[in-house]
Design a protein around this nucleic acid. Structure first.
Length: 328
DNA sequence: AAACGTAGCAACCGCTCCCTC
DNA sequence: GGAGGGAGCGGTTGCTACGTT
Protein backbone atom coordinates (compact mmCIF):
# COMPACT_ATOMS: atom_id res chain seq x y z
CA UNK A 1 0.00 0.00 0.00
CA UNK A 2 1.31 3.35 -0.95
CA UNK A 3 1.84 5.98 1.61
CA UNK A 4 0.02 9.28 1.35
CA UNK A 5 3.15 11.19 0.56
CA UNK A 6 3.69 8.90 -2.33
CA UNK A 7 0.31 9.63 -3.67
CA UNK A 8 0.91 13.29 -3.24
CA UNK A 9 4.17 13.11 -5.04
CA UNK A 10 2.55 11.07 -7.73
CA UNK A 11 -0.19 13.58 -8.02
CA UNK A 12 2.30 16.35 -8.21
CA UNK A 13 3.95 14.53 -10.99
CA UNK A 14 0.59 14.03 -12.51
CA UNK A 15 -0.19 17.67 -12.35
CA UNK A 16 3.06 18.45 -13.96
CA UNK A 17 2.34 16.00 -16.66
CA UNK A 18 -1.08 17.40 -16.96
CA UNK A 19 0.21 20.87 -17.34
CA UNK A 20 2.79 19.82 -19.78
CA UNK A 21 0.36 17.80 -21.73
CA UNK A 22 -2.35 20.36 -21.61
CA UNK A 23 -0.41 22.34 -24.11
CA UNK A 24 -0.03 19.42 -26.39
CA UNK A 25 -3.70 18.66 -25.94
CA UNK A 26 -4.40 21.70 -27.98
CA UNK A 27 -2.93 19.72 -30.78
CA UNK A 28 -5.71 17.17 -30.21
CA UNK A 29 -3.39 14.60 -28.71
CA UNK A 30 -4.91 12.18 -26.29
CA UNK A 31 -3.39 12.18 -22.88
CA UNK A 32 -1.60 9.13 -21.57
CA UNK A 33 -0.11 8.19 -18.30
CA UNK A 34 -1.27 8.85 -14.81
CA UNK A 35 -4.55 10.54 -14.20
CA UNK A 36 -4.72 13.92 -12.59
CA UNK A 37 -7.23 14.65 -9.81
CA UNK A 38 -9.05 16.95 -12.16
CA UNK A 39 -9.44 14.21 -14.71
CA UNK A 40 -10.62 11.84 -12.05
CA UNK A 41 -13.21 14.27 -10.88
CA UNK A 42 -14.43 14.91 -14.39
CA UNK A 43 -14.83 11.26 -15.10
CA UNK A 44 -16.34 10.48 -11.75
CA UNK A 45 -18.87 13.25 -11.94
CA UNK A 46 -19.79 12.27 -15.44
CA UNK A 47 -20.21 8.63 -14.53
CA UNK A 48 -22.31 9.43 -11.49
CA UNK A 49 -24.57 11.83 -13.27
CA UNK A 50 -24.79 10.27 -16.69
CA UNK A 51 -23.99 6.67 -16.08
CA UNK A 52 -22.20 4.26 -18.28
CA UNK A 53 -22.38 4.35 -22.02
CA UNK A 54 -20.04 4.31 -24.94
CA UNK A 55 -16.65 4.93 -23.46
CA UNK A 56 -15.39 7.02 -26.29
CA UNK A 57 -18.45 9.21 -25.91
CA UNK A 58 -17.88 9.39 -22.18
CA UNK A 59 -14.32 10.50 -22.73
CA UNK A 60 -15.47 13.16 -25.13
CA UNK A 61 -18.49 14.36 -23.23
CA UNK A 62 -16.71 14.48 -19.92
CA UNK A 63 -14.19 16.80 -21.42
CA UNK A 64 -11.33 14.40 -21.07
CA UNK A 65 -8.42 14.21 -23.43
CA UNK A 66 -8.38 10.48 -22.98
CA UNK A 67 -9.34 7.57 -25.09
CA UNK A 68 -12.42 5.68 -24.03
CA UNK A 69 -10.35 2.72 -23.18
CA UNK A 70 -8.33 4.69 -20.71
CA UNK A 71 -11.48 6.08 -19.13
CA UNK A 72 -12.95 2.66 -18.80
CA UNK A 73 -9.84 1.36 -17.14
CA UNK A 74 -9.65 4.28 -14.78
CA UNK A 75 -13.25 3.88 -13.79
CA UNK A 76 -13.08 0.17 -13.32
CA UNK A 77 -9.79 0.05 -11.52
CA UNK A 78 -9.90 3.20 -9.53
CA UNK A 79 -12.93 5.42 -9.49
CA UNK A 80 -15.78 3.02 -9.00
CA UNK A 81 -17.49 3.88 -5.73
CA UNK A 82 -17.72 0.28 -4.64
CA UNK A 83 -14.04 -0.42 -4.82
CA UNK A 84 -12.47 -1.88 -1.76
CA UNK A 85 -9.01 -0.60 -1.12
CA UNK A 86 -6.35 -1.82 1.17
CA UNK A 87 -4.58 -5.07 1.68
CA UNK A 88 -6.18 -8.34 0.81
CA UNK A 89 -7.49 -10.18 3.80
CA UNK A 90 -6.31 -13.74 4.41
CA UNK A 91 -9.76 -14.91 3.38
CA UNK A 92 -9.57 -12.99 0.17
CA UNK A 93 -6.11 -14.32 -0.45
CA UNK A 94 -7.23 -17.87 0.09
CA UNK A 95 -10.17 -17.31 -2.15
CA UNK A 96 -7.97 -15.88 -4.86
CA UNK A 97 -5.66 -18.83 -4.67
CA UNK A 98 -8.54 -21.20 -4.70
CA UNK A 99 -10.29 -19.53 -7.58
CA UNK A 100 -7.07 -19.31 -9.49
CA UNK A 101 -6.67 -23.00 -9.06
CA UNK A 102 -10.03 -23.37 -10.70
CA UNK A 103 -10.06 -20.60 -13.24
CA UNK A 104 -6.44 -20.01 -13.99
CA UNK A 105 -5.48 -16.50 -15.07
CA UNK A 106 -9.03 -15.48 -15.71
CA UNK A 107 -8.66 -12.47 -13.54
CA UNK A 108 -11.94 -10.90 -14.42
CA UNK A 109 -13.75 -14.05 -13.43
CA UNK A 110 -11.85 -14.17 -10.18
CA UNK A 111 -12.53 -10.50 -9.58
CA UNK A 112 -16.21 -11.10 -10.09
CA UNK A 113 -16.10 -13.30 -7.00
CA UNK A 114 -14.28 -10.71 -4.97
CA UNK A 115 -16.56 -7.71 -4.88
CA UNK A 116 -14.75 -4.46 -4.55
CA UNK A 117 -11.63 -5.91 -6.08
CA UNK A 118 -10.61 -5.42 -9.66
CA UNK A 119 -9.06 -7.87 -12.02
CA UNK A 120 -6.04 -5.64 -12.26
CA UNK A 121 -5.69 -5.51 -8.52
CA UNK A 122 -5.99 -9.24 -8.18
CA UNK A 123 -3.62 -9.80 -11.04
CA UNK A 124 -1.04 -7.51 -9.47
CA UNK A 125 -1.55 -9.12 -6.13
CA UNK A 126 -1.10 -12.53 -7.62
CA UNK A 127 1.98 -11.67 -9.57
CA UNK A 128 3.65 -9.75 -6.82
CA UNK A 129 2.64 -11.61 -3.71
CA UNK A 130 0.83 -14.86 -4.07
CA UNK A 131 3.03 -16.37 -6.73
CA UNK A 132 6.03 -15.63 -4.63
CA UNK A 133 4.46 -17.00 -1.52
CA UNK A 134 3.40 -20.16 -3.22
CA UNK A 135 6.88 -20.60 -4.55
CA UNK A 136 8.28 -20.17 -1.09
CA UNK A 137 5.82 -22.57 0.44
CA UNK A 138 6.41 -25.12 -2.22
CA UNK A 139 10.05 -25.06 -3.13
CA UNK A 140 9.40 -27.94 -5.47
CA UNK A 141 7.26 -26.44 -8.16
CA UNK A 142 4.07 -28.27 -8.69
CA UNK A 143 1.72 -27.90 -11.59
CA UNK A 144 -0.61 -26.10 -9.27
CA UNK A 145 1.84 -23.32 -8.73
CA UNK A 146 2.82 -22.86 -12.28
CA UNK A 147 2.17 -19.68 -14.17
CA UNK A 148 0.06 -21.51 -16.60
CA UNK A 149 -3.21 -19.93 -17.40
CA UNK A 150 -4.75 -23.36 -17.45
CA UNK A 151 -6.78 -24.07 -14.38
CA UNK A 152 -5.20 -26.46 -11.99
CA UNK A 153 -6.37 -28.27 -8.94
CA UNK A 154 -4.70 -27.37 -5.74
CA UNK A 155 -7.02 -29.00 -3.31
CA UNK A 156 -5.15 -31.29 -1.07
CA UNK A 157 -2.11 -29.23 -1.79
CA UNK A 158 -1.29 -25.84 -0.50
CA UNK A 159 -4.75 -24.75 0.37
CA UNK A 160 -5.94 -25.30 3.86
CA UNK A 161 -9.52 -24.68 3.00
CA UNK A 162 -12.41 -26.94 2.42
CA UNK A 163 -15.59 -26.46 0.59
CA UNK A 164 -17.34 -24.80 3.49
CA UNK A 165 -14.55 -22.37 3.99
CA UNK A 166 -14.62 -21.56 0.33
CA UNK A 167 -18.31 -21.02 0.44
CA UNK A 168 -18.02 -18.89 3.51
CA UNK A 169 -15.46 -16.79 1.78
CA UNK A 170 -17.62 -16.48 -1.26
CA UNK A 171 -20.54 -15.37 0.79
CA UNK A 172 -18.43 -13.19 2.98
CA UNK A 173 -17.01 -11.41 0.04
CA UNK A 174 -20.12 -11.28 -1.99
CA UNK A 175 -21.08 -7.69 -2.28
CA UNK A 176 -24.46 -6.32 -2.25
CA UNK A 177 -26.09 -3.26 -3.52
CA UNK A 178 -29.05 -2.77 -5.66
CA UNK A 179 -29.41 -0.81 -8.79
CA UNK A 180 -31.72 1.41 -6.83
CA UNK A 181 -28.72 2.47 -4.82
CA UNK A 182 -27.19 3.91 -7.93
CA UNK A 183 -30.41 5.61 -8.70
CA UNK A 184 -30.68 7.09 -5.25
CA UNK A 185 -27.14 8.36 -5.35
CA UNK A 186 -27.72 9.63 -8.82
CA UNK A 187 -30.69 11.56 -7.55
CA UNK A 188 -28.72 12.92 -4.64
CA UNK A 189 -25.98 14.09 -6.92
CA UNK A 190 -28.44 15.73 -9.21
CA UNK A 191 -30.01 17.57 -6.32
CA UNK A 192 -26.68 18.48 -4.73
CA UNK A 193 -27.57 16.58 -1.60
CA UNK A 194 -24.59 14.37 -1.80
CA UNK A 195 -21.04 14.98 -2.76
CA UNK A 196 -19.70 11.72 -4.10
CA UNK A 197 -16.15 12.97 -4.19
CA UNK A 198 -15.15 13.95 -0.71
CA UNK A 199 -11.65 12.71 -1.24
CA UNK A 200 -11.43 14.67 -4.38
CA UNK A 201 -12.46 17.70 -2.52
CA UNK A 202 -10.22 16.95 0.39
CA UNK A 203 -7.53 15.17 -1.44
CA UNK A 204 -4.72 15.94 0.91
CA UNK A 205 -6.65 16.87 3.94
CA UNK A 206 -8.40 13.84 5.33
CA UNK A 207 -9.51 15.60 8.45
CA UNK A 208 -12.67 16.75 6.76
CA UNK A 209 -12.91 14.04 4.24
CA UNK A 210 -16.00 12.36 5.50
CA UNK A 211 -17.89 15.50 6.24
CA UNK A 212 -19.34 14.89 2.87
CA UNK A 213 -20.52 11.45 3.92
CA UNK A 214 -23.03 12.38 6.57
CA UNK A 215 -24.38 8.87 6.70
CA UNK A 216 -21.22 6.95 7.11
CA UNK A 217 -21.31 6.54 10.82
CA UNK A 218 -24.34 4.34 10.87
CA UNK A 219 -22.75 2.14 8.29
CA UNK A 220 -19.60 1.90 10.33
CA UNK A 221 -21.60 1.09 13.39
CA UNK A 222 -23.46 -1.53 11.52
CA UNK A 223 -20.35 -3.34 10.45
CA UNK A 224 -18.44 -2.81 13.63
CA UNK A 225 -15.98 -0.33 12.26
CA UNK A 226 -16.65 2.46 14.65
CA UNK A 227 -13.00 2.59 15.58
CA UNK A 228 -12.16 4.40 12.47
CA UNK A 229 -11.26 4.21 8.87
CA UNK A 230 -7.84 2.95 8.15
CA UNK A 231 -6.38 4.27 5.00
CA UNK A 232 -3.22 5.55 3.56
CA UNK A 233 -4.04 8.90 4.95
CA UNK A 234 -4.15 7.52 8.40
CA UNK A 235 -6.98 6.56 10.64
CA UNK A 236 -10.22 8.35 10.21
CA UNK A 237 -12.39 8.45 13.24
CA UNK A 238 -15.99 8.70 12.20
CA UNK A 239 -17.23 9.93 15.52
CA UNK A 240 -15.02 12.94 15.04
CA UNK A 241 -16.38 13.56 11.64
CA UNK A 242 -19.99 14.20 12.37
CA UNK A 243 -21.23 11.11 10.63
CA UNK A 244 -24.84 10.49 11.20
CA UNK A 245 -27.10 8.45 9.03
CA UNK A 246 -27.29 5.94 6.23
CA UNK A 247 -26.45 6.21 2.64
CA UNK A 248 -26.12 3.87 -0.23
CA UNK A 249 -23.57 3.57 -2.90
CA UNK A 250 -23.95 1.57 -6.00
CA UNK A 251 -22.16 -1.45 -7.18
CA UNK A 252 -21.42 -1.87 -10.79
CA UNK A 253 -20.96 -5.57 -10.48
CA UNK A 254 -24.62 -6.13 -10.60
CA UNK A 255 -24.32 -9.33 -12.48
CA UNK A 256 -23.02 -11.16 -9.48
CA UNK A 257 -24.44 -9.25 -6.59
CA UNK A 258 -27.63 -7.69 -7.63
CA UNK A 259 -29.78 -10.03 -5.63
CA UNK A 260 -28.05 -9.48 -2.35
CA UNK A 261 -28.98 -6.96 0.24
CA UNK A 262 -26.13 -6.53 2.61
CA UNK A 263 -24.98 -3.82 4.95
CA UNK A 264 -22.42 -1.49 3.62
CA UNK A 265 -19.03 -1.79 5.12
CA UNK A 266 -17.39 1.55 4.81
CA UNK A 267 -13.74 0.90 5.16
CA UNK A 268 -11.17 3.25 3.86
CA UNK A 269 -9.78 4.97 0.89
CA UNK A 270 -6.20 5.64 0.17
CA UNK A 271 -6.61 7.99 -2.68
CA UNK A 272 -9.19 10.29 -4.10
CA UNK A 273 -12.40 9.41 -2.46
CA UNK A 274 -14.07 7.15 -0.07
CA UNK A 275 -13.81 3.41 -0.37
CA UNK A 276 -16.82 1.31 0.11
CA UNK A 277 -16.76 -2.38 0.51
CA UNK A 278 -19.61 -4.73 0.96
CA UNK A 279 -18.52 -7.52 3.19
CA UNK A 280 -21.45 -9.35 4.49
CA UNK A 281 -20.34 -11.48 7.33
CA UNK A 282 -23.68 -11.43 9.04
CA UNK A 283 -25.35 -13.02 6.11
CA UNK A 284 -23.36 -16.18 6.43
CA UNK A 285 -23.75 -16.18 10.16
CA UNK A 286 -27.47 -16.04 9.87
CA UNK A 287 -27.76 -18.44 7.03
CA UNK A 288 -27.63 -22.09 6.51
CA UNK A 289 -24.80 -22.79 4.16
CA UNK A 290 -26.62 -25.58 2.47
CA UNK A 291 -29.62 -23.38 1.98
CA UNK A 292 -27.47 -20.71 0.51
CA UNK A 293 -25.77 -23.01 -1.91
CA UNK A 294 -28.47 -25.47 -2.50
CA UNK A 295 -26.38 -28.47 -1.64
CA UNK A 296 -29.42 -30.39 -0.68
CA UNK A 297 -30.88 -29.74 -4.05
CA UNK A 298 -27.85 -30.58 -6.02
CA UNK A 299 -26.55 -33.52 -4.18
CA UNK A 300 -23.03 -32.23 -3.61
CA UNK A 301 -23.14 -31.96 0.16
CA UNK A 302 -20.24 -33.35 2.06
CA UNK A 303 -18.93 -35.03 -1.00
CA UNK A 304 -18.21 -31.73 -2.58
CA UNK A 305 -14.65 -32.12 -3.79
CA UNK A 306 -13.57 -29.70 -6.42
CA UNK A 307 -10.30 -31.40 -6.92
CA UNK A 308 -12.04 -34.38 -8.32
CA UNK A 309 -13.77 -32.46 -11.05
CA UNK A 310 -12.75 -31.49 -14.46
CA UNK A 311 -13.17 -27.86 -15.29
CA UNK A 312 -16.35 -28.21 -17.23
CA UNK A 313 -17.98 -30.17 -14.53
CA UNK A 314 -16.73 -27.78 -11.97
CA UNK A 315 -18.11 -24.80 -13.78
CA UNK A 316 -21.39 -26.54 -14.12
CA UNK A 317 -21.64 -27.32 -10.48
CA UNK A 318 -20.13 -24.20 -9.07
CA UNK A 319 -22.59 -22.14 -11.01
CA UNK A 320 -25.10 -22.98 -8.33
CA UNK A 321 -23.24 -20.73 -5.97
CA UNK A 322 -25.12 -17.49 -5.58
CA UNK A 323 -22.01 -15.40 -5.98
CA UNK A 324 -20.26 -17.69 -8.38
CA UNK A 325 -21.96 -17.05 -11.64
CA UNK A 326 -19.38 -18.58 -13.87
CA UNK A 327 -19.72 -17.81 -17.47
CA UNK A 328 -17.39 -20.42 -18.84
C1' DA B 1 24.56 8.78 2.84
C1' DA B 2 24.48 6.79 -1.60
C1' DA B 3 23.71 3.13 -4.77
C1' DC B 4 21.30 -0.67 -5.98
C1' DG B 5 17.62 -4.05 -5.93
C1' DT B 6 12.89 -5.18 -5.02
C1' DA B 7 7.92 -4.61 -4.33
C1' DG B 8 3.68 -2.73 -5.41
C1' DC B 9 0.72 -0.28 -8.14
C1' DA B 10 -1.25 2.14 -12.17
C1' DA B 11 -1.69 2.27 -16.81
C1' DC B 12 -0.88 0.85 -21.55
C1' DC B 13 -0.83 -2.53 -25.36
C1' DG B 14 -2.48 -5.90 -28.22
C1' DC B 15 -5.56 -9.31 -28.87
C1' DT B 16 -10.19 -11.44 -28.91
C1' DC B 17 -15.01 -11.33 -28.57
C1' DC B 18 -19.39 -9.44 -29.43
C1' DC B 19 -22.71 -6.54 -31.42
C1' DT B 20 -24.53 -3.79 -35.09
C1' DC B 21 -25.20 -2.62 -39.71
C1' DG C 1 -21.95 -13.62 -44.02
C1' DG C 2 -18.60 -10.14 -43.27
C1' DA C 3 -16.77 -5.67 -42.06
C1' DG C 4 -16.23 -2.22 -38.53
C1' DG C 5 -16.30 -0.48 -34.03
C1' DG C 6 -16.55 -0.88 -29.10
C1' DA C 7 -15.81 -3.43 -24.93
C1' DG C 8 -13.32 -6.51 -22.24
C1' DC C 9 -9.40 -9.22 -20.92
C1' DG C 10 -4.68 -10.72 -19.89
C1' DG C 11 0.08 -9.62 -20.33
C1' DT C 12 3.43 -6.32 -19.86
C1' DT C 13 5.76 -2.08 -18.81
C1' DG C 14 6.99 2.01 -16.23
C1' DC C 15 7.27 4.52 -12.16
C1' DT C 16 8.03 5.36 -7.30
C1' DA C 17 8.70 4.04 -2.49
C1' DC C 18 11.02 1.17 0.35
C1' DG C 19 14.55 -1.99 1.89
C1' DT C 20 19.21 -3.62 1.77
C1' DT C 21 24.06 -3.36 1.18
Amino acid sequence: MRKPDLMVSKDKMNNNNNNNNSNSNVKSKLRKGLWSPEEDEKLLRYMITKGQGCWSDIARNAGLQRCGKSCRLRWINYLRPDLKRGAFSPQEEDLIIHLHSILGNRWSQIAARLPGRTDNEIKNFWNSTVKKRLKTNNSTPSPNNSDSSEPKDVLGGILPINEHELMTMCIDSSSSTSSSSMQSMHAMVLTDQFDPFPMLTNRYDMTGATDNFPDMHACLNHVGMVDGLHGDYGILEPNKMGLESDFNLPSLESKSIENNSAPINVKSHNNHFNNICFNNTEQIQNSNVEDLFGFGNHGQGENFRMGEWDLDGLMQDISYFPSLDFQV
